[in-house]
């Protein structure tokens, strides 16, 4: 287990380095400069030169590449060009928690609703219930988040006045309802489908039949024997969604007015805010690596076979 952990952490280093290299050169190759996003009139070339010098953009690219990497390794991700009063570290500290909170709530909702619904769909003999659950999951997978968010805002906000149409007042306010549901829908649908399939698979396996024959009550069988074995694929699916739900969705955050990480990331691209683009991408990459690692570790807890294989 320990050697597995160390191997995985070491293999993350080249992954992060490749991510850094790609995003660095793609960001700099994008047409336009950080100083082109002004108003009516273009900025004087002489002023552009001064700004370039101030932020070391006049240096050759390989110098910028290495110096940014060196600073990033020491935890300094540079200044923001879009808002000169803030550093990338400030931005991450301010915007990432908002997205993390919303994402965590959405994932929790997806798992807490998805597992019982998936189990119900697998176990029910009632075609209407199965059909309804299948409809929810199909809608959730096929509808893009910007459509879901817009529909929820227009119907619940503008139409019924139940939730605010825009803005962020904190996790435990009505302003978080629309973004949480919008974010939760896709992972919810995936968890339902996946858990339903794997429940159907384990339903007729020998150990389940044995448990039934022993006279165990249905619920303990569903939870301890079937559920636990069917959980592994569902966890993998939820894990793959968690990475992008946790760091925030640009569409959901823009449309619902959430000052989150996903929105800021895309605004930074529009503003050619290189340090922010690179810094946030690296953090995104780290989050994906960590979550994948956590998903792998969860196999050890859930699946005795994985533990056995490692033990050999």
């Amino acid at each position: 287990m320990l050697s597995f952990l160390i191997k995985r952490i070491l293999s993350a280093i080249p992954t992060l380095l490749i991510a850094y290299t790609l995003v660095f050169f793609i960001a700099h190759a994008t047409p336009g400069s950080p100083w082109d996003s002004g108003g009516n009139r273009p900025i004087e070339p002489s002023i552009k030169a001064v700004l370039d010098a101030k932020y070391n953009l006049d240096k050759p690219l390989y110098v910028q590449y290495t110096s940014y990497l060196w600073n990033a390794l020491q935890g300094d991700f540079g200044p923001s060009y879009r808002d000169r009063t803030q550093s990338v570290n400030d931005i991450v500290a301010r915007f990432l928690p908002v997205s993390l909170k919303l994402g965590a709530a959405a994932m929790l909702l997806a798992v807490l609703l998805g597992l019982p619904l998936g189990a119900l769909a697998a176990l029910t003999r009632h075609p209407a219930v199965d059909g309804l659950i299948r409809m929810i999951s199909t809608l959730g997978i096929s509808m893009p988040t910007y459509v879901v968010t817009s529909i929820l805002i227009v119907s619940l906000g503008v139409g019924l006045g139940l939730v605010p149409t825009f803005g962020w007042k904190g996790l435990f306010t009505a302003s978080s309802l629309v973004p949480i549901f919008s974010l939760a829908l896709a992972p919810l649908a995936a968890v339902i489908r996946c858990f339903r399939t794997s429940m159907l698979e384990v339903m007729n396996l020998d150990f389940v039949r044995t448990a039934r024959a022993k006279g165990m009550k249905p619920l303990p069988i569903i939870i301890h024997h079937m559920g636990r074995n069917a959980l592994i694929p569902a966890i993998t699916v939820a894990g793959s969604y968690a990475a992008y739900v946790l760091v925030g969705s640009f569409f959901v955050e823009s449309i619902a007015g959430i000052p989150g990480f996903g929105r800021y990331f895309v605004l930074a691209i529009a503003a050619r805010d290189y340090p922010v683009i690179i810094g946030t991408t690296l953090i995104y990459a780290v989050i994906v690596v960590v979550i994948n690692l956590l998903v792998d570790l969860s196999y050890f807890l859930l699946d005795p076979r994985a533990r056995l294989e490692q033990g050999r």
Binding site: I153, V154, G157, V158, G161, P164, T165, F166, G167, S254, I255, G257, P259, R263, L267
Partner: peptide, 20 residues
Amino acid sequence: MTIASGDQCTAQLRAYEADE
């Protein structure tokens, strides 16, 4: 003032119609 990004006109109109 609430800060919007992206499509500000749409955000403004929705909030306006909802009396926000």
